[in-house]
């Protein structure tokens, strides 16, 4: 738990730095790529809200991301062309879906939870594939316009980028607020010791469900912004590889650090995007997989987590782990 990163002056500093980077981003990289990057960063934050603070690893985040993307594009294409309606509709869809899926999935935790969310996400994938009249099947949905926001045209990539940035900043602020609230404290307590949390009267399943729904809604928000930004929705969005990518971004950046996943998403997307343009572009997955494996093996705190740990840890002390008396470790491993 690295709440120290996201709270107080340090939180403001790190958040401010990321925000400043976000402000200049579309002038440094191609604006549409910048849009994609911020959307994935938000998706990673949504995932961290779940994994970092409840210990639940969802391997089905793409169902909210991609599902909301479909809803958003369908609403723009067939509806009023209003950006707000499309995004709200998409988030509502993700929220209801998360509620239904969560109702089933939070009955189990750990590895089971990962496998169950993965499997349920596949249901939506196959539905999207076969309900071609609604989703365009394997061809996807293309829209000609991003819609309008209270009369403002969003077709300019930079205008749309800054809109996405504002939404993302507000969402991240919301996430920070959630994890620093009493609700977040209960989540943390549950993650550390579920039995104890239960014994003091918390209905742990309800708390987990609430976290899952929040995470799903945020992922849906990110996915709808992504789909509208790219003016398309397709099977790539609901594919399990997208869920895997979101997991990788978060762990790359640092579980439970909120800001870490933003850095992780930026790194992942940049690596992915720019490696794919180089002569070793056909080896992208080898590069990504290897980097990810190394992080898991030697740097489980993630990039931001490791930096924090190395340079900002309050005071290094040797902690004797009660369960493993034969091992002396510096700080407990971040338990997932």
């Amino acid at each position: 738990m690295s709440l120290s990163l996201i709270q107080g002056r340090r939180g403001l500093l790190v958040g401010g730095m990321l925000f400043a980077a976000g402000l200049v981003l579309p002038y440094v990289v191609y604006p549409v790529f910048a849009i994609n990057l911020v959307c994935f960063a938000l998706a990673a934050v949504s995932f961290d809200l779940l994994l970092g603070f409840t210990g639940l690893l969802s391997f089905g985040q793409a169902m909210f991301w991609g599902g909301a993307g479909y809803v958003a594009t369908i609403l723009i294409k067939g509806g009023t062309g209003s950006f707000v309606v499309a995004v709200l509709g998409a988030v509502a869809y993700a929220l209801v879906l998360a509620l239904a899926v969560g109702f089933v999935a939070v009955r189990r935790s750990g590895i089971y939870f990962a496998m169950i969310t993965l499997a349920i996400a596949e249901i939506q994938y196959f539905l999207a594939f076969q309900l071609a009249d609604l989703t365009g099947g394997e061809n996807g949905i293309q829209i000609v316009s991003r819609g309008t926001l209270f009369g403002l045209s969003l077709e300019d990539d930079k205008v749309y980028y800054y809109l996405v940035l504002v939404v993302a900043v507000l969402s991240v602020a919301f996430a920070v607020r959630v994890v620093s609230s009493p609700f977040g404290a209960v989540l943390a307590a549950m993650r550390e010791n579920e039995v104890r949390a239960r014994s003091v009267g918390y209905r742990t399943e309800s708390f987990r469900l609430a976290a899952f729904v929040m995470s799903g809604a945020l992922a849906g928000l990110a996915g709808s912004l992504f789909a509208i930004g790219n003016r398309l929705a397709g099977l790539d969005g609901v594919d399990w590889h997208t869920s895997g990518a979101i997991v990788m971004m978060t762990i790359l950046g640092g579980i439970g650090t909120i800001f870490g996943p933003i850095v992780g998403a930026a790194l992942f997307e940049s690596l992915d995007y720019f490696v794919s343009k180089t002569p070793i572009g056909d080896k992208t997955n080898i590069v990504m997989g290897t980097v990810f494996a190394i992080v898991i093996l030697v740097a489980r705190r993630g990039i931001v987590g490791e930096i924090l740990h190395r340079f900002f840890a309050p005071r290094k002390r040797l902690v004797e782990d009660e369960d493993q008396p034969d091992r002396l470790i510096v700080d407990p491993e971040p338990s997932v």
Partner: peptide
């Protein structure tokens, strides 16, 4: 154990 799940996921990619 989730870390081993993730490690084997990385193996799939590679």
């Amino acid at each position: 154990p989730l870390y081993n799940l993730l490690l084997t996921f990385a193996l799939v990619l590679v």
